[in-house]
Every structure is written in structure tokens, then in C-alpha cells.
Design a protein around this nucleic acid. Structure first.
Length: 593
RNA sequence: GCCGGGGUAGCUCAGCGGUUAGAGCGAUUGAUUCAUAAUCAAUAGGUCACGAGUUCAAAUCUCGUCCCCGGUACCA
């Protein structure tokens, strides 16, 4: 019985290229989960896109003297390429500047507004004296009234940690042009979060399967819930869908309000692109579907409080819901990761403590990166990326344990038989190792399903060691000198194990598993490939999306019947051993940046 | 400040009330040589941040202290 599973992946922000920390937090874990579920035969819809509105985009564009749209076009392409090269198997990776996304966002806004969940309040805002541009709190700096630190931000002082208001600062100035800001009243729309407090509470207490930090953090927030502004004084954003704002260019929907709606709008776009415009309902209006969200810990509140409130308020209503069927589905699980640091420090583009995904992949293969981010990534606590550790994990774990097992097995078989050998009678030891590997489909599968990816890949590696152990004990290279049939049996068993491990490694290491699949003499795509497609919307605008024909995958999450006699291809190493000098080279590169 | 998470072997991390606290790597010793000098086995290595408490039993629960990370509602 196949399940409907929505894999909702956090939307990378299109203000610049993304670094390793970003993909460690949401991309790789989500892809492992999605690939496993597809191999298992479930109906997976994995969606996301670039998040393209908001102040940082406009400021970055101003700095370069280009329009926000030009800037996000560039980074949508860069980020899309990164994700493609990493093999993240989105059913749809789109963007928030599509006509479809605007329409869905406006539908939610309008529906929530009509139902009284959006209210108007006046707040004091800061504006640039020269350009009139609104300045978010953190774009204002000045002297901290508490500790006297001269570079305190409008929201917080980094020196003493005090929470501040921009109006508290002594000698406030804009971080953009250094001029003192002008403060004036501004009318904004607020999402009435307290209206959902009771429903959220009832829902959250039931979510005992969530990682504890997500649940307790969210429950805690409920105690002191306030209405939250969902519009900004900004030109760049989705227009407020009310008649009196139709011609106004100074106030737009807040970027986070539209970003979370992306999960729904991307599902709707996917269905439309497939030519089955209502297919999104099979995930969103299906109470037995599972919705699993992946993100970094800084995004929790938007997914556990704000987005659920919006879904509760919308129900099945509005233009897209059509007032029919079940209310839209709330998150089933919110898988939040901790943070990856870089050589002991926080990632920081401005200070050059960063490795961009594209730079990394220009020099190294995607699977070693996916391996590192899974086995040593920030799943349960902050973890550190160091080049020394990356090289070590690559050489001494990935190459030595799994790569070597594949290479020694295939080389032995290829040289002596050329094809999958006919086994003789299996001994208890033979059957024992086959059974243990086959059992991995259960243990590894359960770990992945529970979002315990680190434990899952460790278990898979342990199984690979087991087969190395089996070969060491059985010594087929010695046996073959005296007993060819026994050697054939041993190698057949090892090859069956490798074939099954190949499948178990596929969610983690899709590229090398595909290579191995071919070397074992199989055809077809075990789990791939990804592709870009161009779509044109009704207004004639086009955009590129990342997608793939995943239904054609031949990889199944179950033991294989490796056909006796199947011809193998000439084996070649799956992974490259990295020279120790890589560490010094990369550290020097960081120094220069 | 407040809220949440974390501090465990040389390193990177699991474990989160129950036999003598685990893994991988590193170290030492031995075996092996089919394989990318890749493998396999054994040994050594820890007052589980610190202090107090609850309990028959604490790395695990409670309280306090110190340090690191995130959030703190106008960064996303």
C-alpha cells in the first residue's frame, strides 16, 4: 500500500550562492528521505524553490546597480545548478516569482483577510532619509544605550546581547548609507496568531514524534503569542490583493508569508505542469498523507507556528481550495537540523569563512560531500566541517570500506568469471551473511523513515564491513587455486551483498550507486536522472525548474535477484582517494578569500 | 535578560534511568596480500563540563554554576 508523502524542503534564499551549511541543513537530508520513500514505492512529492523577495535581495541588487529581478534570476540559476549537481531529486524546484506563486499567495492572503484573521495595525518604522527606503531593524546601527558599544544593531546589541528597538540607539544610522534614519508611522497587516493559539496548542501537544527541540520550542512560544506583521514597506514583493493597494508600489507582502506558501503553490504548479491540475489535492487534502518538512533550526517558528496558523485559517477555502474537500494538511513532522560550522567558525560570506556548493563541486564529487554531510552533519547538534576531516572520511571510510569492498569483489569476479558466477551449495556462513545484508533493508529503512540519517548510514557502513570480513575469512583468491566451484560460490555471495548494499547506499550516494549498477551489468536508472525543464505561464513569462521522471526508477528497496550469467563491465574505482595535500591547498584558499 | 539545544575516549560523534559507557578514525600489536598500501583481528585509551540532590541504580532525572550554538517576533 503506497503512502502519499510530501517532502517539503526549506526554500534557499536567492541573495547569493549557497554554502555547505545550507545544503547540510535541508537539502541532503530531505533528498535521502525522498529517495528512500520512492524506492519503497511511496508516492513522493518533493517540492521547493528559491525564495526571492525581501530586503536583502533589494539591497544586494542596489549595490550592483541591477534590478532585484535580475539578481534573483542569476541566483535562481546558480542555486538550481548547485542542487542539480548534488543530485537533490526535487519533483519540482521552482521559484517564488512565478505567476502561479503570486496567485496562490494572494488567494491565501485574501481568504485570511476576509475571514478576519488578518488585522491592520500601525507601527513605527525607520526609513532612509535619502531614498525613503524602509530600513529593517537590523539594517540600523548605533551606540548601545546599555553597554555603549558603537556598532549595536537596531534589533540587538552583539556586544552585550540586549534586545533593542531602533529608537533606543544613540546616534542611529543606516547601515546602507550611514545617514540617520527617519522614523514615522506606517500601517501594516498583521496575522492574528493569538486567534489560533488554542488549535495550535492542541495540535502541537500531540506531536510527540517530533525532535524534542522543535516541539518544546514551539509549545513554549504559544505562551506569549502576538500578532505578526505580514507586510513590509518595500517595492519588491507580492502585491497586497486589496483594491486600495492595487496601484501602490510602496507596500508588499512580507517575504516569509509568501515563502511558506511556496510549499502549496509549488505543489499546485507541479500538478499543473503534469497536466493533472487537481493532483496536488492527493497530498494536501488527504488526511492519511504524511507531510515532512526539512530545514535548519533558525526556521522552526515559521513552520511550526506561522505556516500551520495560515493553513488552519485557510482550511479548504479560497480560490484554490475551492471550498471543497478536506482542509489543507498540517505538517506531520518538522525535521530541523542544527548548524554546520567551518573550521571551528560560523559560516560567513562577508568574512570569507565559506565554501560555496558550486566551488566545492567544481573540485570534488557530489557523493563524498553527501557522505560527509550525512555521517558528520549537524543532525543532532552543531558539527564542524574541516578539510582534514573531509579528506579523512573520504579516504579512510568511503574509499577504504565501501569503495574497496566493491572494487575487490568486482575485480575478483571480473578477472576469474567475467559474469555473475553460478554458485554451488551455500554454506551456513554464506547464507548468514546474505541474510544479514538483506535484513538491512528493514533496519536501514526504518532509520531513514524516522529521519535518523546518521544512524542509517552508519548501519549501512557496518554492513559493508561485514562483507569485507566475510571475504577476509573466506579468501576466495586463495580458494580459487584449488576449488573453482567454491570460489564461485563465495564470490557470488559477495556480489549479491554488494548488489544489495548498492541499493541501500542509493539514497545517500546516488551517483556512485548508479555507476555500480552499470558495472554490475544492469541497465536503466536505479534512481535518476534529474533534469531541467522550461515552463511558460499564461502571461508568456518562462521559468526553468528542476525535476525528473522518477517514476521510471528501477531501484526498489528490497533484496535483488542478481541473475547468474549477467556480464559485468570492466570495474573501475567508485571513489577517488584524495591526496593529503588537499587540506593545505584548501586552507590556503580560505586564507586568501 | 528570557526561551530552547548542546558540553561524553587524542579527533569527529552515538547513547539520554538499568549488566563492566559505545562507534568510526587515530595509537599499539598481530594476520593477510584479491583490492584505490585498500582489508581483518586484538589491545590500550573516559571521575560522561563542574557542584549538589533524588533513586536500589544517574552520562541519562532535578537544582545551581561555567562555557558554546540558535531564537527572541522588521534578516531570511
Amino acid at each position: 500500500m503506497s503512502e502519499y508523502i510530501l517532502v517539503a524542503v526549506a526554500w534557499p534564499y536567492a541573495s547569493g550562492p549557497r554554502h555547505l551549511g545550507h545544503v547540510a541543513g535541508f537539502g541532503v537530508p530531505a533528498d535521502i528521505f525522498a529517495r528512500y520513500q520512492r524506492m519503497k514505492g511511496n508516492r513522493v512529492l518533493m517540492i521547493s524553490g528559491t525564495d526571492e523577495h525581501g530586503t536583502p535581495v533589494t539591497l544586494a541588487a542596489d549595490k550592483e546597480g541591477i534590478t532585484p529581478k535580475q539578481l534573483v534570476d542569476r541566483y535562481n540559476e546558480v542555486i538550481g545548478n548547485d542542487l542539480y549537481q548534488l543530485g537533490l531529486s526535487y519533483d519540482l524546484f521552482t521559484r517564488t516569482t512565478t505567476r502561479n506563486h503570486y496567485a496562490v499567495t494572494q488567494d491565501l492572503f485574501k481568504t485570511l483577510y476576509e475571514r478576519g484573521y488578518i488585522i491592520v495595525q500601525t507601527t513605527l518604522g525607520a526609513f532612509s532619509a535619502s531614498t525613503g527606503q524602509a530600513l529593517p531593524d537590523r539594517y540600523i546601527e548605533g551606540t548601545c544605550p546599555i553597554c555603549g558599544y558603537s556598532e549595536a544593531r537596531g534589533d540587538q546589541c552583539d556586544n552585550c546581547g540586549s534586545q533593542l528597538d531602533p529608537t533606543d540607539l544613540i546616534n542611529p544610522r543606516s547601515k546602507v548609507d550611514g545617514q540617520p534614519p527617519v522614523f514615522r508611522d506606517s500601517e501594516h497587516f498583521f496575522l492574528d496568531l493569538p486567534a489560533f493559539a488554542a488549535q495550535l496548542q492542541a495540535w502541537l501537544v500531540q506531536q510527540e514524534h517530533w525532535r524534542p527541540n522543535v516541539r518544546s520550542f514551539s509549545l513554549n512560544m504559544l505562551a506569549d503569542l502576538k500578532a505578526r506583521a505580514i507586510t513590509r514597506d518595500l517595492e519588491w514583493g507580492i502585491p497586497i490583493p486589496l483594491p486600495e493597494y492595487a496601484d501602490r508600489n510602496d507596500k508588499k507582502i512580507y517575504v516569509w508569508f509568501d515563502a511558506v506558501i511556496g510549499y502549496l503553490s509549488a505543489s499546485i504548479e507541479w500538478a499543473h505542469n503534469q497536466g493533472t491540475p487537481d493532483a496536488w489535492r492527493e497530498w494536501w487534502q488527504n488526511p492519511s498523507a504524511r507531510h515532512v518538512y526539512f530545514m535548519g533550526k533558525d526556521n522552526i517558528v515559521f513552520h511550526s507556528i506561522i505556516w500551520p496558523s495560515m493553513l488552519l485559517g485557510y482550511g479548504n477555502g479560497g480560490t484554490f481550495g475551492g471550498g471543497q474537500g478536506e482542509p489543507l494538511h498540517l505538517p506531520t513532522n518538522i525535521v530541523s537540523s542544527e548548524f554546520l560550522t567551518m573550521e571551528g567558525k560560523k559560516f560567513s560570506s562577508s568574512r570569507g569563512i565559506v565554501i560555496y556548493v558550486r566551488d566545492f563541486l567544481s573540485r570534488y564529487d557530489p557523493d563524498p560531500l553527501r557522505y560527509f554531510l550525512t555521517i558528520a552533519g549537524p543532525e543532532n547538534q552543531d558539527t564542524d566541517f574541516t578539510w582534514a576531516e573531509f579528506v579523512r572520511r573520504n579516504n579512510e571510510e568511503l574509499v577504504a570500506t565501501w569503495g574497496n569492498l566493491v572494487n575487490r569483489t568486482l575485480t575478483n569476479v571480473y578477472r576469474n568469471f567475467g559474469c555473475v558466477p553460478q554458485p554451488g551449495r551455500l554454506s551456513d556462513v554464506d547464507q548468514g551473511v546474505l541474510d544479514e545484508i538483506a535484513h538491512g533493508f528493514t533496519t536501514v529503512g526504518e532509520l531513514i523513515d524516522a529521519a535518523r540519517f546518521q544512524a542509517a548510514i552508519k548501519e549501512t557502513m557496518r554492513l559493508a564491513s561485514l562483507v569485507n570480513n566475510y571475504l577476509s575469512e573466506q579468501e576466495p583468491w586463495r580458494v580459487i587455486k584449488t576449488d573453482r566451484e567454491r570460489a564461485a560460490t563465495i564470490l557470488y555471495v559477495a556480489l549479491r551483498c554488494v548488489d544489495n548494499l548498492k541499493l541501500m547506499f542509493t539514497p545517500f550516494l546516488p551517483f556512485s550507486s548508479q555507476q555500480l549498477h552499470a558495472m554490475l551489468g544492469y541497465s536503466g536508472f536505479i534512481a535518476g536522472p534529474l533534469e531541467f525543464r522550461e515552463y511558460t505561464e499564461s502571461d508568456g513569462s518562462t521559468h526553468r525548474v528542476l525535476t525528473g521522471a522518477y517514476a521510471t526508477w528501477v531501484g526498489r528497496w528490497e533484496p535483488t535477484d542478481l541473475p547468474v550469467g549477467q556480464a559485468l563491465l570492466q570495474p573501475a574505482p567508485l571513489f577517488k582517494k584524495l591526496d593529503e595535500s588537499v587540506v593545505a591547498e584548501e586552507l590556503a584558499r580560505l586564507e586568501q578569500a
